[in-house]
Amino acid sequence: MDSKHIEHLLEKYWACETSLEEELELKTFFNQEEIPDHLNQHAPLFKYLQKENEYPSLDESFDDELLKAISRKEGKQVKVSRWYEPYLKLAAVLILLIVASFAVTTYLNKQEMPVEVADTYENPEDAFEETKKALLLISKSIGKGRTHTQKITVIHEAQDKIKDSNNTSL
């Protein structure tokens, strides 16, 4: 491999400008047998980085242990869900029955309900009287408000008169 190219890659490496591929290229270069003398000082670093990538490692027995642990967990979960399942179904059916019976009785009660209960008057005269009462109540309240405002107007008028008399005396 061209040592100029490696020198260039090294410069980029120290400046953190190398890509992962270029870093791999450096590792491969420095892990070969023959390295030019002027580049040899960098070899231990890349040899170390390569070595560390292989150590330590986990063997197949780790996979077996882990998968066993997972399947044991899964087995337990399945058992629990089987134990719950019929009770959950029963509860769901009961809730459904209660809701349905409540809905049916409410519907039947509504049908039996007399029409008079409805919130209106069958006789137009009664309705008129009731409306009149309501309107009178409102007008009474408005009337009250007016008497109060009239009082305020009297005060205003008095104030104006005083002001006028002051102005004329000045």
């Binding site: 330590p56 490692s57 986990l58 996979d63």
Partner: peptide
Amino acid sequence: KQDILPQKNKLYR
């Protein structure tokens, strides 16, 4: 097994 397990050594180191 395909996505998680192969990372074991990277995680281990």
